[in-house]
């Protein structure tokens, strides 16, 4: 029996799915015997934590700066020297002293780090993470390259939102885990797919609109059964997804052979991530690979988006 759980309403709603078939409301006494629980939840920005934002790159107009246009209380931000161009050339050496000073003085533990050029080369983000975790023990650090989107400001926004959601997502996962001890938990992603509890804690942003996505999926699967309460459809919809992970990168490759090699690396990472997201190891498979050459840039720069899926164990 798999449990679908919809959170966010007045009370959690749970439905049971037996042998892939919708089996109506879950018997709460049997709930803890479930093989797995799939949770559909829309994360509320209201519970967002203030974030220490570190951007690695050059100076820019204030309107393009980190946290520009964000509501008050979103956190504190700095720009430190460093980063890479899209061709992988270092723009400047990373100013680790500035990173250290900011981390020590910001008074926050949730960090979002975005380096110029990190979809191509994440070295500076990783180096910042190392400095921050040494300076702030227990810091939770989101690195923007994990979200992969080209576009520094958008990627930075993702990293900030993910970092801000971290504490609330952790509490949420704690709470569901406490209610369903011993039951493996999955959370519905915003688009399609599920992620493991562990993955959810690390990348809550992936599940920002998990309930909305599950609701649509559930309604589609239940057909025109009128009168299905929204949370029921969402809870059922959550059980219909499978572990999924995505990696987006900009890669540089001269020639087919090199492209195949770098694609293999990206596939390796997405397969690893989908297993981390809860896929049974043997079932993880690449679902989709999108490779587009980047316009107006030298030959051999590609935007790569790889999706992997697997069966829940």
């Amino acid at each position: 029996m798999i449990l679908g759980v919809a959170l966010g309403g007045r009370a959690p709603v749970a439905v049971a799915v037996r042998d892939g078939a919708f089996a109506g409301p879950a018997d709460p006494r049997a709930a803890r015997a479930a093989r797995a629980a799939c949770v559909a939840v829309d994360l509320e920005p209201a519970g967002a934590a203030p974030v220490a934002v570190i951007r690695v790159g050059g100076p820019c107009p204030p309107v393009l700066g980190p946290l520009a246009g964000w509501p008050d209380g979103s956190g504190v931000a700095t720009i430190v020297r460093g980063g890479h161009s899209l061709t992988g050339r270092p723009l400047a050496p990373l100013d680790t002293d500035a990173v250290r000073a900011f981390a020590a003085g910001c008074g926050l533990t949730d960090f979002a780090v975005t380096a110029t050029g990190s979809p191509v080369l994440a070295d500076h983000e990783l180096a910042v993470a190392a400095v921050v975790s040494a300076e702030v023990p227990g810091a939770r650090i989101t690195l923007s390259y994990e979200f992969g989107r080209p576009g520094l400001r958008e990627r930075e926004g993702d990293a900030i939102r993910n970092a801000a959601l971290g504490p609330a997502a952790g509490r949420l996962a704690d709470e569901v885990a406490a209610r369903l001890p011993g039951v493996p938990l999955y959370f519905a992603r915003s688009g399609s797919g599920l992620v493991s509890e562990h993955y959810f804690r690390r990348y809550p942003l992936a599940c920002l609109r998990g309930a909305a996505a599950s609701h649509a999926r559930g309604l589609a699967a239940l057909g025109e059964a009128a009168g299905v309460p929204g949370p029921v459809a969402a809870a059922y919809g959550a059980t219909l997804a499978v572990p999924e992970a995505q990696v987006e990168r900009i890669v540089q490759a001269r020639g087919r052979a090199e492209l195949d090699r770098v694609l293999q690396d990206v596939r390796d990472e997405v397969l690893t991530r989908v297993v981390s997201a809860g896929a049974a190891p043997g079932s993880a498979a690449i679902a989709e690979t999108i490779v587009n050459p980047l316009s107006y840039l030298p030959d051999g720069l590609y935007r790569v988006l790889v999706t992997a899926r697997g069966a829940a164990p």
């Binding site: 007045r10 009370a11 749970a14 919708f22 709460p28 709930a31 239940l222 009168g227 949370p231 029921v232």
Partner: peptide, 20 residues
């Protein structure tokens, strides 16, 4: 108030079976 809530079957009359 945040109990697991038993839910009616789709299409059912919406009778609640109580707080599970």
């Amino acid at each position: 108030p945040a109990a697991w809530e038993a839910v009616p079957r789709p299409g059912g009359p919406g009778s609640r079976t109580g707080r599970a």
